[in-house]
Design a protein around this nucleic acid. Sequence first.
DNA 1: AGCGCCTAATGAACACCGTTCAGTTAAGAT
DNA 2: ATCTTAACTGAACGGTGTTCATTAGGCGCT
Lengths: 211, 211
Amino acid sequence: MARRNDHSREELQAMALSAAEQLLDEQGGAALSTRKVATAIGYSVGSLYLIFKNLDDLCWQINARTLQGLKLALDEAAVDQPAQLRLKCYAQAYLNYAQQWPHRWALLYEHRSPEDLDAPEWLHAAIADLFSRIEQTLRELKTDESDEEITLAARTLWSGVHGITMLKLRDKLYLGADAGPELMCESLIDRYMTGWSGTKQAVNALQGEQL
Amino acid sequence: MARRNDHSREELQAMALSAAEQLLDEQGGAALSTRKVATAIGYSVGSLYLIFKNLDDLCWQINARTLQGLKLALDEAAVDQPAQLRLKCYAQAYLNYAQQWPHRWALLYEHRSPEDLDAPEWLHAAIADLFSRIEQTLRELKTDESDEEITLAARTLWSGVHGITMLKLRDKLYLGADAGPELMCESLIDRYMTGWSGTKQAVNALQGEQL
DNA sequence: AGCGCCTAATGAACACCGTTCAGTTAAGAT
DNA sequence: ATCTTAACTGAACGGTGTTCATTAGGCGCT
């Protein structure tokens, strides 16, 4: 049983990634193993290494698909929404996505290659692409801010949403009842944004006084 | 070589934890193994299981020590500081601690027992204890807010700082130059707090800061 | 039809891992 | 000196990632 050619490289790759995602969803990241994935698609262990460089590589490719799914979810949530509401849409969609695919989301952030030497380039590009949505929204809301200010605010807000999501998924929130993370995202965005305006006004006021 | 009694249970436990922490610091969480820890303290694998229930247990105990160190760092950073500055002190100390012990910090959040069934009770207590510092500070700053408001704000702010820290440690920030996370924490706290109060108090806050 | 070639596919092998437990051995009691 | 006992061991089991010599099936050629 060799040279079966039942499936092309691309088909095999897709089959393996789907099987791995199913394993991940059902049993968590610790259960991801080359042998299990290989068995799931009806091939031997060695064959997996003809398709992926190693298990790390497979994980990175799962992460690529996860990021793409996240991107779609964000865009879908924000479609036809005014800039003012879009931030909260993004936050809700992010939170929802993470809760829907907790293990995929965890893999996205917990997976590291040994020595961190080869975090792929496209990963950075994909994350920058996600950031750009928030930056774009902020730019629409604050037309006269510098790029540095926009970037800082986007990353700060996104980190906040990310942190809320992470603590929620780790059950380390337990804010009395539930409905916690949604409220926290609301609180974060509302107060950060009005605080942003407030700080600017305050600075202007102070500078006006001092002149 | 049996019944050596060179060390008491407590000594052995401390030795093992220290060795494990050194391994963790130098080679990361993936390199933590019972065999390595056992060899490092000059005992056999089996002996480690007389001291710890299993590797999970050892990890939880490392986490306990990490949390205690974090608590000390936070308290030290905030000593004799007015409530107005204490929040930023906490944030900076948290960020510093995570950067000083990246692998210990990562273990704190990435380690999960199978099926999440036995996340220890003391862990929740320790985290609640950390939260209480922020809540207490917020209570001093906002004397007429409800407990729910204080709790919500504390968790939101802390999640934000946590998210910033996490993204920084994953090298997924790259905010142009560095000095990113510190600026982001400043931005988060300033804007969230002034956004909470409204514009009027923002001026006071800024003036107080400049003194 | 028969013959080779080539390569997709295999799975045994290696070095690790967590965990267990029957067995060993030394310290202290008798 | 012998016994008891428990601290300690390390081989064993089933799992992991990864490699690579071997195999066998599809394909082109004669």
